[in-house]
């Protein structure tokens, strides 16, 4: 299983985490993800996820002229999105702990 396939299931949560750090737009999310060590196979894969997050009411967006460059779509979390992010964080912590225990044979 490639890491991009593994990432697919948790990209929703990762984007919620990135947007939780402050209003941001698509390309900037990619840069931030890269900063944390994520290597995206296709940068565009965040947009279907963003469409879904918006449809589910977890994020809202606004089009803004940027001082330099093109018109950009900025995303922020809704209260529902903040709740979803906290739940993702809990789920991820318990899952990663179990996986770590398993692969490191800690028991």
């Amino acid at each position: 299983m490639s890491s991009s396939q593994m990432l697919k299931g948790i990209l929703d949560g990762c984007l919620l985490a990135i947007i939780n750090k402050g209003e941001t737009y698509g390309y900037e999310m990619i840069e931030k993800l890269e900063l944390y060590g994520f290597r995206m196979v296709s940068e565009g894969s965040i947009y279907p996820v963003l469409l879904r997050l918006q449809k589910e009411g977890f994020v809202k967006s606004v089009m803004k002229e940027s001082p330099s460059g093109p018109k950009r779509k900025y995303y922020t979390l809704t209260p529902d999105g903040e709740k979803e992010y906290l739940e993702f964080k809990e789920r991820w912590e318990s899952l990663s702990m179990s996986v770590n225990r398993l692969v490191k044979e800690e028991i």
């Binding site: 737009y25 698509g26 390309y27 196979v41 296709s42 940068e43 565009g44 894969s45 947009y47 469409l51 089009m63 460059g69 093109p70 018109k71 950009r72 779509k73």
Partner: peptide, 26 residues
Amino acid sequence: EIAEELRAHLEDAENRGKNLETVTGG
């Protein structure tokens, strides 16, 4: 909306020397 958003992304990406394929994944 999605066309404008992707256009902005592609402009940023091409400005930094990336090509279409890094965005659409082949």
